[in-house]
């Protein structure tokens, strides 16, 4: 559960699991997911357990998400950009679909 401080302008609109959310410039995709109040950013490929970003500094890889159609990206290292689509990474990625 996170919120934006009222004095910070939210100027970038991104989509988290399809829903629009406005975040400030400089926010990462991971921050956008937290601001959107998503229950999880990924489900692990082992047990399917839900996870949200943990370290926010590129070390833990718990913020892996599908960003603009690319699976398993480290959302804490990707700056939010207008129109960016961030989706939950559901378990192991699908590498190829016939």
């Amino acid at each position: 559960m996170f919120a934006l401080r009222p004095e910070v302008p939210a100027t970038v609109e991104v989509f988290v699991d399809g829903a629009p959310v406005r975040v400030p410039e400089g926010a990462s995709a991971a921050a956008a997911v937290l601001l959107a109040g998503a229950a999880a950013i990924r489900e692990t490929p082992i047990s399917g357990a839900p996870r949200l970003p943990y370290c926010m500094m590129g070390a833990c890889f718990d913020c892996l998400a599908e960003i603009d159609g690319v699976a398993n990206r480290q959302a804490c290292l990707v700056p939010a950009a207008p129109g960016m689509r961030i989706a939950r990474q559901r378990g192991a990625r699908v590498a190829f679909e016939a």
Binding site: F2, L4, R5, V23, C55
Partner: peptide
């Protein structure tokens, strides 16, 4: 540290 990064980079607080 993660929470502080949210505060610094995006003005996000819990």
């Amino acid at each position: 540290g993660a929470a502080q990064i949210l505060l610094k980079t995006a003005g996000v607080v819990p």
